[in-house]
Design a binder for these strands. Structure first.
Lengths: 260, 260
DNA sequence: ATAAAATTCTTATATAATGATAATTTATAG
DNA sequence: CTATAAATTATCATTATATAAGAATTTTAT
């Protein structure tokens, strides 16, 4: 264990299910002497990446809230897309969850979400949540943007039930890529259906999607064209705003660099 | 520069105002050779604490969104308080911003907020934002819980306009501590007033506050008793829930430890 | 196709991390 | 209030890793 990994390994122990750890537990779990863990944990507490809780437990520190906020206010995708999620929700013909997601390492991560207050069901779509790569429209509208070697690598990490499944998946992906949008049913949460469009910005290295999730029970075929129209319109709007934000950033850096 | 500081110093460059940096800029700013920064940045990109953006710029990575989410779903204060903010907002006699804040190092940090949709003014109270220690009711209801040496240290970090100011501040703090709640006017944002109560949990090491912020123009004297009643009621409720969450955590750790 | 910029690689040297153990502080129970 | 256990910090010889200058390579822009 060396470099940043030393710290990352400790942070990675913390999860929703298990949000506080003692030094001894960390020590056991990482098979590292407790004197070493004590030293590292102390460093991270100083830096506010961890904080001591009750007993001898430690939990994630407030630094994450702080940096998360900075991302919220500055990340082009979040900045551009966040304000539209509510509008999209309000224009959809039936109650919905609306999600902005992006490729995150080898996973898809939700980076912003807006749920209609009338949407009762609990869903897997919440900001910060990692989503399965090959299930759900949200994810598909993302990986359908990827091709060649990169796609192959990503797909090989997944466990398909059979080779046939994999072939079908790739075929569907290809046809969805042509259409420019996609639809899935019950792949992530039972009883829910999802529609999604791709969002991308090459200059900013953004590979993302905008999606609306509905209750299957609420859905009628006549809703479909409205749903796609909304997603397409807002998808383009988000891309347009990402571009504007990109220009702003360019201008800002140009200014600050010429001052020096 | 050694240990975690090495990484923290780089992360600390990123702010709302300046959210992307090139390696060369970091290198200049930290007076460290670029070959070193390249190596460190690469490590952090692998760990997803940074990500490469367009040009040769880097920005904060998605790890912060992920860990922030874990805190959101597991931090006792956020878990206990978050659900009440909207209720509090709805029961207040006039439109308000409602804030849960806590001591964060030598600052006060907002950890959850709910703003009435009808509240038009932009405010400084947003999740993750660091608040000034000695201004505003939100902060005061926090530091009024601190005494002795600790208070002295905190206060000494602040620049008071005069010694008289400082004496007055400490006197007001003491009387507010006795009352159990506090009120300030326009100390953080012009035209806004704030009311706050303390929230604490010794076992969990939580020193926090619950506050409601209003437009001065909307406020009438007759609102005051309702505002205080709401804050007090919800403050106690939040503390009660923190306790329940604490018990849950205890039980969980007891179970998982006895399994092993 | 070329030049410039960005990034990675290589290396000897300096510096810091490790972990066993001891010392100290803090919490807990009687 | 004291005794005991638990948690945390300190010490230090050893080992491992980071550093930074410059060369080599890759990427990007023209």
């Amino acid at each position: 264990m060396s470099g940043f990994q030393r710290y990352k390994k400790i942070l990675d122990l913390f999860s929703e299910e298990r949000s506080s750890w003692t030094v001894l537990e960390i020590s056991k779990s990482l098979k590292t002497p407790s004197s070493t863990i004590y030293r590292i944990v102390r460093e991270m507490v100083t830096a506010e990446f961890l904080e001591s809780a009750s007993g001898s437990y430690f939990r994630l520190g407030p630094a994450f809230i702080k940096f998360n906020r900075i991302i919220n206010f500055s990340d082009p995708l979040v900045r551009a897309g966040q304000p539209f999620l509510k509008k999209l929700a309000n224009e959809n013909p039936i109650t919905s969850v609306n999600v902005l997601a992006r490729l995150y390492g080898n996973n898809v991560m939700c980076v912003a979400d807006y749920k209609n207050p009338t949407f009762k069901k609990n869903t897997s779509y919440q900001r910060g949540k990692l989503m399965p790569l090959i299930y759900g429209a949200t994810s598909r509208a993302i990986i359908m943007q990827i091709t060649g070697k990169r796609l192959e690598n990503l797909i090989n990490l997944e466990n398909f039930k059979s080779d046939e499944n994999k072939t079908n998946f790739l075929r569907d992906l290809k046809s969805d890529r042509k259409k420019g949008y996609c639809f899935t049913e019950g792949q992530v949460d039972k009883g829910l259906i999802g529609f999604a469009v791709s969002i991308s910005n090459k200059k900013l290295g953004i590979i993302a999607s905008l999606s609306s999730i509905f209750n299957l029970d609420d859905f009628l075929l006549e809703h479909e064209p409205i749903i796609y129209a909304n997603l397409t319109t807002y998808g383009l709007l988000v891309e347009k705003y990402i571009n504007e934000i990109f220009d702003d950033i360019q201008k800002y850096h140009h200014e600050t660099n010429s001052i020096r």
